[in-house]
Structure formats: C-alpha cells, structure tokens
Amino acid sequence: MSVKPSPVFKPVEAPSVPVHEVPPVAVLPVANAPRRKVPPRVRRYLVRSLALLVALLLWQLASSTGFELFVKFENVPTPVAVWQALLVELSSGEFYLHILHSLQRIGIAFALAAVLGVSLGIAMGRSPLAEDIILPYIELLRPIPAVAWIPLAILMMPSEESSIIFITFLGALFPVVLNTCQGVEQSSKLLVRAARSLGASRTAILWHVVIPGAMPSIVTGLAVGMGVAWFSLLAGEIISGQYGIGYFTWASYTLIEYPKIIIGMLAIGGLGTLCTLLVRLACSPLLRWQKRGGH
C-alpha cells in the first residue's frame, strides 16, 4: 500500500515518537546492562541459595573451631564430615535397609489409617448416631501424643514391629477422620437436592455428591496424616525397633558416629516431605476439577 499519509493523520502519529522520553544522557555505564538482565525470579533464588550457603559456612567455621557459647559445637560434625559420611552411607546397603523398614511401616500404618479414617469420617459425617458414638473416643484420645502411647503399645502388641506400626497408625488416624468428617458435613445442600430431583438414591448421593465434595478435605486430612505418621514413626523407632531411619539416627548417637545423626535427620525430613508430596500427587486426579480455567 503506497497511500501517502494524509495530513490529518500526521498530528496523531506525532506523539507516538516520544522525543522527551529519550534519556538526555544517552551513554549509560555498560557494566549496568547485564546485571539488569537477570530476571527477578532467578535473582531471588540466588539470594536464597546464598543464604543457605552462609549458614553452611558458619556451621563449618563453628564446628572446626569448636565454638562454644551456651550452644556447644565441639561435638557437632562439620558439613564436610557429614558429606563424606553421606557418600559412605549411600554406597552401603545398610542405610537403604533402614529407609526400607521405615517406608514399609509407614506404608502399612498409613494405608490402615486412610481406609479406617475415611470410613469413620464418612460415617460420622452422614449419621449423627455414628458421630455420637465415635466422637467421644476421638476427643478423648486425640490430645494424647503418639509418644505417650509407646509403653502401652509395647505391652499390648504382640511384637515390637506391630507396636511401632500401631503408634504410627494412631498418629495418622485422627487428622484423616476429622478432616473427612468435616468435609462430609459441609456437603452442599443444593447439590444434594439437585441429585435427588434427578432420581439419585441415598447411596448414589453418597458416591456422586457427598464424597467428591468432601474430597478436598479428605486429601488435606491424608496429607496432614502422613506428616503426623512420620512424626509418630520416629518416636516409635527411636525407643524400640532394630531398623528404621529413626533407629539409625538414635543409634548413631549412642555409637558416637555423629555425622550419621545429621544424615538421619536430613533423610527423615526428605522422606516425610516426599511422602506427603506423593499423597497429594496420588490424589490429584480426584481433584482435577478444582483447577479453575485450566485448559
């Protein structure tokens, strides 16, 4: 198109070339240019990594000089020593055996807690009678920490293994029951009405309306339950048990292999986070509908 710009258009176009916005000092220091190109997100992660690195350096310094001011670093292994011990542990089968034992206990206890907890929670949410029967037990037992159960669990359960699993199960159970019950009780009256007017039976309403509606609460309960399960498991493993990451950590203390304490601690943190993540990931197909506008 070779249409000449009509004079009418000219004044309109003129302001689009902002003469005044051109910096009067055109020569900026060149060194500034690349620093500005680091995206803010990357920069923030750099700062976070740096913050951690500073802590590591301080730790190394404190441990190697035997810093002591109320807190004693004399017996705390240096990060370098921990790293070296970690390499040794990662190449030994024993370490994985401990992790495997812990995971197995978590697996059994959590599965039991999930099945029983969701069932009890649904029963309580749906039936006032069931709630009246179950709730007193929960209110009575819930404030008792898992660690407090250890002596009785050892006395009651046929083996040490089963007592650890029992304690772990108990820890996971309460968050699952309570969250499920809450989710079920909060199911939408309107959606239940809609389902009834479409010919749904009581059972169908439970499956198609109540449980899907409670699912976000149930998943939260399961994720919290998984966290508490790890907490309870470690209490059990430290006090009784012959394998497991909690036992590994405590045994490292009694055997004066201090770098392994840190390795145990990090493994516990990592595994707990990983398991909670797995629970959320496994449940995410059930909550696909919650992602709004996801195309």
Binding site: L190, L191, R193, A194, A195, S197, L198, G199, A200, S201, A204, H208, V209, P212, G213, M215, W289, Q290
Partner: peptide
C-alpha cells in the same frame, strides 16, 4: 422425583463432573 425436573438459580451443577457427565447423571440414575 425425576419426572419433575428442577432447574435452580445457580451453582447447582456438580463441579467434579464434566458438563457431559452432569447432563448424563439423570439417565445414569
């Protein structure tokens, strides 16, 4: 009952079912 179909003011669709599953719910029941 299903012989009396009900249309509500708003927010009465099952959010966890797709649009098609919502419509197919009555026949399924």
């Amino acid at each position: 009952g299903p012989e009396r179909g009900m249309v509500f003011q708003q927010h009465s669709l099952f959010p966890w079912k797709t649009v098609k599953e919502n419509v197919a719910f009555g026949p399924l029941m």
